[in-house]
Design a protein around this nucleic acid. Structure first.
Length: 478
RNA sequence: GGCGGCGUACCCAAGCGGUAAGGGAGCAGUCUGCAAAACUGCGAUGCAGCGGUUCAAAUCCGCUCGCCGCCUCCA
């Protein structure tokens, strides 16, 4: 049984989809006005793994992640650059898609855009007016928060205190300071759509209510996003959707924690925004992904060179072992795995994932398997191949493959992994080969001084030499 | 001020009532011409502090200290 932490309940509960094993899942995607940062990456990777795991466990998942392509900030950027909002939105959608692809984030089943959901949004707003939850003033439409008595349930906020603590300038025309805009009359230089209230555009929260209903229906099984979206965004979505349909909007609310940079929240004002593209300049996509999955998705994590370096080192360890399995024991690992054996070894991993998608624990178990594999291979080399070795090593390989495809890490071919690291070195491969040859002749002549000189010279350039039984190989040190 | 969360070895991190997973770094050993990789051993009598509940607590309760997030655009 999968258990998930539901923000609405404030505790873990058994995950039971509304209909058999079908899961309807919606995650708030980016507002496309700038390059995506490492925080977007975390949210995307976290929910990607949740998506993959639910499918792995036999659920039929319909996963929707939107692009918010109508927004104040998009318009602002467009005006600054003197181009259309559409152009800005398209540029950053493309950039986001590139980043997701680089990070190995699988494509959701649907990726709706606000601009393509306008009819449904207008219809949604009209329904709220018809049901008495919204009112029109000068071409704007507002939601009457006080009409919805469950308001505050998700974010555990009390309406009276919210009002008292309001720090924003209140729009005088609203009936109540808490009310928020469903539809805004368009100003100059703004994209607009024709509606029964005049030319305008949707407010911030309505698009998710409309898009999720359009594709997934009135009740979602999972709705996800960053913790910061709990209030007001998700609170307002609940108010809109439940007022309109009279049905529960979401069964399980999942929220991921933040990525901090040097213990600080990323923000434009501090100027410490780390874009995914910048992160990828310094670290491999797989290392970034492993870093993101090395803590539980709800915990805050701190991005630093140290932890990214740790992730690189962990990957080296993993792939060194995987390579050894493939190179030294190809006929053993290609043996058919015993089903019962495999399930037994996968159990700790799936138990970890069942417990609110505990990727950190699962990764810990994978490294236990790495240790076991190495120990068995050492033993087999020393004392010969036993029956246990023959049944267990293929199983370990299968564990790597299965969890690798769920986590989206550890699933490369080792040659591919080590080859990719070559881009970090500042010396040609020919030159390395020449030095290795020179060193090997020196070694033949027992000229250890020269041999060690060459080792040192290459190490300074980031190359590690390994003298193996079947010759010298080199690897990129990081 | 209101609400939510966090504090586990040098660093990262799991653990959520049954006697501290895992990774990195460090030290020692096996292997090696020397290394690297791998393996083995060492490393928190302790889980911010103080009380309490319990046969049993890092895990539950209370208080204190420190840190963070949300309440305003935000993944």
């Amino acid at each position: 049984m999968i258990r998930v932490y539901n923000t609405l309940k404030g505790e873990k509960e058994d995950f039971v989809p509304q209909k058999d094993n079908e899961v309807r899942m919606y995650v708030c995607g980016p507002t496309v006005y700038d390059l995506s940062h490492i925080g977007h990456a975390r949210s995307a990777v976290a929910f990607d793994v949740i998506y993959r795991y639910l499918k792995y466990r036999g659920h039929k998942v319909i996963y929707v992640r939107n692009y918010t392509d109508v927004d104040e900030k998009i318009k602002k950027k467009a005006n600054e650059e003197g181009v259309s909002s559409k152009e800005i939105a398209e540029r950053y959608i493309r950039a986001f898609d590139e980043d997701m692809d680089a990070l190995g984030v699988s494509l959701p089943d649907f990726r709706p855009k606000v601009t393509e959901t306008m009819d449904e949004i207008i219809g949604f707003v009209q329904t709220l007016i018809d049901k008495g939850f919204a009112y029109v003033i000068d071409g704007d439409v507002y939601y009457s928060v006080r009409k919805f008595n469950k308001y505050g349930a998700l974010s555990k906020k009390n309406i009276e205190e919210l009002e008292a603590g309001a720090r924003v300038e209140v729009d005088e025309r609203k009936k109540d300071p808490l009310d928020f805009a469903l539809w805004k009359a368009s100003k100059e230089n703004e994209p607009w759509w024709e509606s029964q209230w005049g030319k305008g555009r949707p407010g911030w929260h309505i698009e998710c209510s409309a898009m999720s209903k359009k594709i997934l229906g009135e009740t979602l099984d999972i709705h996800g996003g960053g913790k910061d979206l709990i209030f007001p965004h998700h609170e307002n979505e609940i108010a809109q959707s439940e007022a309109a349909t009279g049905k529960p909007f979401v069964r399980y609310w999942l929220h991921n924690g933040f990525v901090n940079i040097n213990q600080e929240k990323m923000s434009k004002s501090i100027g410490n925004i780390l874009t995914i593209k910048d992160a990828l300049k310094n670290y491999s996509a797989e290392a970034i992904r492993l870093f993101l999955l090395s803590s539980h998705y709800r915990s805050p994590i701190d991005y630093s060179p140290d932890v990214l370096h740790d992730a690189e080192t962990s990957l080296d360890r993993f792939y060194t072992t995987k390579e050894r399995m493939e190179k030294e024991w190809p006929d053993v690992i290609s043996k058919k795995t015993d089903k019962k054996n495999k399930e037994e070894r996968l159990k700790p991993l799936s138990d970890a994932m069942d417990d609110d998608f505990n990727t950190a624990l699962a990764i810990g178990h994978i490294f236990n398997e790495v240790n076991i594999a190495n120990r068995m291979m050492d033993e087999a080399k020393k004392s010969g191949v036993g029956a246990e070795f023959k049944t267990l090593l293929p199983v370990v390989k299968a564990v790597f493959d299965e969890m690798g495809s769920v986590l989206g890490v550890f699933h490369k071919r080792p040659e591919e992994y080590f080859n990719e690291k070559k881009k970090y070195i500042k010396i040609s491969e020919d030159e390395i080969k020449r030095l290795i040859d020179e060193r090997n002749s020196a070694r033949k002549n027992k000229n250890w001084t020269r041999a060690d000189e060459i080792r040192k010279e290459l190490e300074d350039k980031g190359i590690i030499l390994e003298d193996r039984a079947d010759g010298t190989i080199w690897k990129v040190k990081r």
